[in-house]
């Protein structure tokens, strides 16, 4: 009946998801509709919001050390992807159905191979839920390393963001050359701590001030789920 089983199925290949994976290993499966991962920080061209990063988990501390050796958050992207290596990760996979079972969840996904039914004891959604998003920002990166952005209402979509970006470019760029426009929104969330409803655990990775904190929170949740 099921093509695959896992203890925890994680929606979104976010940084928090990587933290859960670090704790759960092969007992976890990550399902992501996008072709990339960690987009809420790296794809969003985010800068670190908090000054003091104090991970508490062993894995979080180790990752923090590796990140600290690089001169920018963007330069840490390969280090983040290394956290996903060897994991059961499905990128470009669409979730078709989630149904509650007596002892867990039945999740039907579809990727390039086709449909796949996965049984999971726990389901964790690490993506940002629309109802908690209070603001969005589309960041751009300049040649100098400066990051600036246009602020958007929570309901704005990428089309609207691109329209506004085109309008405000002269003011935003002020003669400086942009080297990259973000692939994803830099989100501000009203609440992002671990919540549970409908039996699904929710931990919005984008809500954390920095990727190390999101990863660390993921590790803690993963350890809890694994009964450690």
């Amino acid at each position: 009946m099921f093509d695959e089983r896992c203890e925890v199925l994680i929606l979104g290949a976010t940084v928090a998801a990587a933290g859960i994976l670090a704790a759960a290993g092969q007992k976890a499966v990550i399902v992501e509709s996008r072709p990339d991962a960690g987009y809420e920080f790296f794809g969003a061209l985010r800068t670190v919001r908090g000054k003091h990063i104090s991970p508490v988990t062993e894995q979080g501390i180790a990752l923090h050390k590796r990140f600290a050796a690089r001169d920018s958050l963007r330069a840490c992207t390969p280090l983040f992807y290394a956290c996903l290596q060897g994991g059961r990760v499905y990128l470009s996979a669409q979730v078709l159905d989630i149904s509650r079972q007596e002892d867990g969840f039945a999740v039907t996904i579809c990727d390039a191979s086709g449909e796949r039914r996965i049984f999971a004891q726990h389901l964790v959604d690490t993506r940002a839920e629309a109802r908690y998003i209070t603001a969005k920002r589309l960041n751009v990166l300049f040649m100098s390393g400066r990051v600036a952005g246009i602020d958007l209402p929570a309901e704005a979509d990428m089309t609207e963001a691109r329209r506004q970006l085109a309008e405000k470019l002269p003011e935003l760029a002020a003669g400086e050359e942009i080297v990259a426009v973000a692939d994803e929104f830099d989100l501000t969330l009203a609440d992002f701590r671990t919540l549970e409803y409908d039996g699904i655990l929710r931990i919005a990775s984008a809500g954390y001030a920095d990727p190390i904190s999101a990863f660390d929170a993921g590790v803690l949740l993963g350890e809890e789920l694994m009964g450690r």
Partner: peptide, 15 residues
């Protein structure tokens, strides 16, 4: 055409 292999290849490439 292989979703799992494709995901692993993307991750390995970027890592």
């Amino acid at each position: 055409r292989d979703g799992q292999a494709m995901s692993a290849a993307i991750i390995d490439g970027r890592a």
